[in-house]
Simulated scan of single mutants.
Amino acid sequence: MRVNRTLLSIALVVIALVIQVSVLARLQLPGAVPDLLLMVVVGLAFVYGHVSGALIGFGAGLLADLAPPADHAAGRYALVLCIIGYLAGLAKPENGQLKSAFVPMAVVVAAAIGSTLLYAGVGALVGDTAARHVGLGSLLFTAAVYDLLLAPFTVPLIMAMARRTVNDPLTESSSGGSDATSGWLAAGTGLRIGNQRGGLRVRAARNRAARAGRIKGVKRL
């Protein structure tokens, strides 16, 4: 089952990164760029938890750091998504299903703002002041708006695919089927035993009647 999780996570991260670089980054939207990679990390963390969310976030961020046309130090976005994946995983519901849309939307907004602040903060530590020239306020606002608009179309789908690797329908159906089958077999066995007992009684009565008939017939002869 962990193999299925790993394969799904890698596939979603690669697809999201390709769309991010080839489509979303070329839209020339004002301010920030819609972060599909962040949606993948948040959606998987909602299902897999904080530990897996941190690992997926680190791997996704490192891949984004190395993918062209990256213009920043390697490991910068990996650190950001690792922290975001860990914190988003803490909001994982106990049953793996969200009861309302408020919690995931609030987490998405917090992740968008938090990732932008972390990215700018780490950049300031390494001497990258690009956020100052663009305007941090506009980046925060546009990042929250774009990711909030993108989330309803991506996060539920990602969570649905992730749940299929957590709850194996074949295992559940086989276990449920075995329980149901065992119940049916138990009921059927009891019925079969009852029928067998009733049949034996009827046969015994018929045998006694046949014997009596044979004896009477002999006597009548």
Rank of each mutant, 00 (worst) to 15 (best):
K99M: 13
Q97T: 08
L79P: 04
P93C: 11
G89M: 02
P104R: 03
A78P: 15
F102K: 03
A101S: 09
K99C: 11
A88M: 02
G89I: 00
G89Q: 00
A91Y: 13
S100K: 09
V80M: 08
P104S: 02
Y86S: 09
C82Y: 09
G85L: 01
V108T: 09
I84E: 05
L81R: 13
A78E: 12
Q97W: 05
L79G: 06
A101M: 08
L81K: 15
G85V: 01
L90A: 02
L81G: 11
F102W: 12
A106K: 11
P104H: 08
K99D: 12
L87R: 06
L87S: 03
M105L: 15
A106Q: 14
F102A: 08
L87K: 04
A88L: 01
E94Q: 08
A78D: 14
L79V: 12
V103S: 06
V80N: 02
K92I: 00
L81F: 14
L87C: 06
G85A: 06
Y86V: 11
L79R: 05
C82R: 07
G85M: 02
P93K: 08
L90W: 13
S100D: 11
L90F: 13
P104Q: 03
C82V: 05
K92L: 00
V107R: 07
L90K: 03
V107F: 11
E94V: 15
I84V: 14
V108W: 00
K99P: 04
C82K: 05
L81E: 12
M105A: 15
M105K: 10
C82D: 07
A78L: 10
A101W: 07
P104I: 00
L79T: 12
G89P: 01
V108N: 01
K92T: 05
G96T: 07
L87W: 03
P93L: 10
P104C: 02
N95A: 09
L98I: 06
K99E: 13
L98G: 06
A88G: 08
K99G: 14
F102M: 02
L90Q: 03
G96E: 08
A91S: 15
V108Q: 00
A91Q: 11
A106N: 14
L90I: 13
A101D: 05
F102N: 04
A88F: 03
Q97N: 10
N95H: 15
K99T: 14
Q97L: 09
L79E: 07
K92E: 05
N95F: 12
A101F: 09
M105D: 07
K99H: 15
V103M: 14
G89Y: 05
Q97V: 10
V80L: 10
K92S: 05
C82T: 12
L90C: 07
Y86Q: 09
I84G: 07
A88E: 04
C82P: 06
A101R: 05
E94G: 12
A106L: 15
I83V: 13
A88Y: 03
L79Q: 07
I84W: 00
L87F: 04
A106D: 14
N95Y: 12
G85K: 00
I84D: 04
C82F: 13
V108M: 11
G85C: 04
S100I: 11
Y86A: 13
I83T: 03
L87E: 06
